[in-house]
């Protein structure tokens, strides 16, 4: 995997470094990044599709498609495109993340 993929940062801005981990690997992002941006900058997806069709990394970036739900090691689930990344977050992308929501 030498060819870069994922988001490319064009405007770094003057921001603090955030340290977090993806599937146990320590990685970095910048304050103000959404969890999804933080994942994509590090070439990671958000989750593995529970239907076995590969991985998913969001689609709409505006909270509408629900394809970016991620699971944290502590069990929290969140919409990655709408949640700012925080120091110490432990994100698990290798598990299918079954979103719980009422009415389903």
């Amino acid at each position: 995997m030498s060819v870069p993929t994922g988001f490319r940062r064009l405007v770094p801005g003057n921001r603090r470094t955030i340290r977090f981990s993806i599937d146990g690997q320590p990685v970095q992002a910048l304050a103000g990044d959404s969890v999804l941006t933080a994942l994509r900058i590090n070439m990671a997806p958000a989750r593995t599709s529970e239907f076995g069709d590969g991985s998913r990394a969001g689609f709409c970036l505006m909270g509408a498609c629900q394809d970016c739900w991620v699971t944290l090691k502590d069990g929290r689930r969140l919409r990655a495109c709408e949640t700012p990344v925080e120091d110490g977050m432990d994100i698990i992308t290798s598990l299918p993340s079954e979103t719980q929501w009422p009415g389903a």
Binding site: L10, G13, S49
Partner: peptide, 25 residues
């Protein structure tokens, strides 16, 4: 269209406007 790296046009614009990123290289 479901693979990582595919986004809506609006999403591509949000990545740029709100996050200063392009959706790909």
């Amino acid at each position: 269209w479901t693979q990582p790296g595919v986004y809506t046009l609006g999403g591509a614009q949000i990545a740029l406007k709100a996050q200063g990123c392009a959706i790909g290289h």
